[in-house]
Write a protein that binds this DNA or RNA. Sequence first.
DNA 1: TGCTTTTCGTTCAAAAACGATCAAATTCTA
DNA 2: TAGAATTTGATCGTTTTTGAACGAAAAGCA
Lengths: 259, 259
Amino acid sequence: MIQENSPALAPQRREHLRQMLREGGVARVEDLRRKLDVSVATIRRDLEILEEDGKVRRVHGGAVSMESRLEEPVFENKTNLAAKEKQRIAEEAYSLIESDEAIYLNGGSTTLFLARLLRERSDLTVVTNSLQAAIELADSGPRVILIGGELRRISQTMVGPLTSAVLAQVHVDKAFMGTMGFCLKNGLTTTDPNEAYSNEIVAEQAGQVILLADSNKAEKVCFARFSDFDKIDLLITDRNLSAEYTKSLPKIGVKVRTV
Amino acid sequence: MIQENSPALAPQRREHLRQMLREGGVARVEDLRRKLDVSVATIRRDLEILEEDGKVRRVHGGAVSMESRLEEPVFENKTNLAAKEKQRIAEEAYSLIESDEAIYLNGGSTTLFLARLLRERSDLTVVTNSLQAAIELADSGPRVILIGGELRRISQTMVGPLTSAVLAQVHVDKAFMGTMGFCLKNGLTTTDPNEAYSNEIVAEQAGQVILLADSNKAEKVCFARFSDFDKIDLLITDRNLSAEYTKSLPKIGVKVRTV
DNA sequence: TGCTTTTCGTTCAAAAACGATCAAATTCTA
DNA sequence: TAGAATTTGATCGTTTTTGAACGAAAAGCA
């Protein structure tokens, strides 16, 4: 627990601020000032910084957390951990994107983190089958091309045969793909066959295929398979991935980056 | 984080207001004032803002949620006549839809009103190029098929050549189309050529084409034309449409319904 | 219809919050 | 330790928000 009365170091204090906002969703400057025992000027400066990082959105009188519960419930520790890893994975993925590229994002929480990082990148073209990602980017930033098709409620993505109609007409430099599960034997799998179908088409057409998957996804096998590892150029994952993968994947041509 | 007794942030308060209205469908200014513990002036200002955003419709004595699932009470409201007319037009359009049909909705506010009425209709298939409509229907109700293509920011719709890829593969029984302008001489027009292109394809393929347009749209001519009246089967509009239209349109095969 | 009551919109002044600036305090570094 | 760089808190003028006041408009009623 962090003590309330002694002024924390700046980065630490900002992290605390971020957490507080995240829990409450929203907070007033005055309340934050009292809790952290600093001046309002400092709070404002901190919020400014957090806003630049996209962590919060400032409003008159306070701030609103931007990283609340679109996907994961905040309360559970494990999911929280996964969220941090996903954020880091997304940041690493972001660093790979070059100017004026066309990229693909499929559905899933990790790619959604990435989408959020793209808001200011008006030089990019983002092709996606994720309704959430499209919403995230609808008002600013990159050109957005939405793959048509049937909207699958659970994942809020466009899936199925109709998606191929648009996919056949565009080419992306890099495809960033999330997955429900992966393992050496069965490759990449997800729950819905229609979703798998769309992923499969993308994996075959994209210039580079970059898999974004935290280590929790390892060894998981779902119903529908959409690709083998030989289609994948790079896997971005976290440090907890077992050595089995980090050693054998490079041998079959899949680079691995852990963050 | 936020205490009950400390005044909430303005945006937060407005969100709260919106929720309260949404649950109850309708509320009086005085009741809202007491619940939120602010002055009536503030409530009015908030409602004004929410109305601009299309979240609520103000009526004498209070406001009605536009996001409510319940049937809306009939209230008089002269300030937002257009919204009221659009709502009525949408309700009339809704009455034409039969069981298990596939329908198309293009972008625009009138069709969005219609989309909101479809939330419980899980027997329907809704094809649309409107991101807003898709969001509205994403969690419940009909099967949703989103036309792919480039996302046009201003209208939040998918437009352009890529849309034809999906459109070519589906058939809808009825297409409900909004338009920016219509007149006898130039037919139906909208501002963006890409949007016109998508509309044009739909108008040619749909079983029936039903135009939803309040009388303000009459005599307006925009840059890009997408159809003549001979493609239109029915126009649903309001009572203020001039006799010039109501008389001549039936002669060229366009039924007219005023609500 | 005419009258009363409620609600509305507008205006205005007070209060709250903001951004910018600067000096003091703190931390870092040589 | 001295000096530079960073961080902090206080101040001030400006902007935004709020609540109250008042005439106009709408609704209720006889």
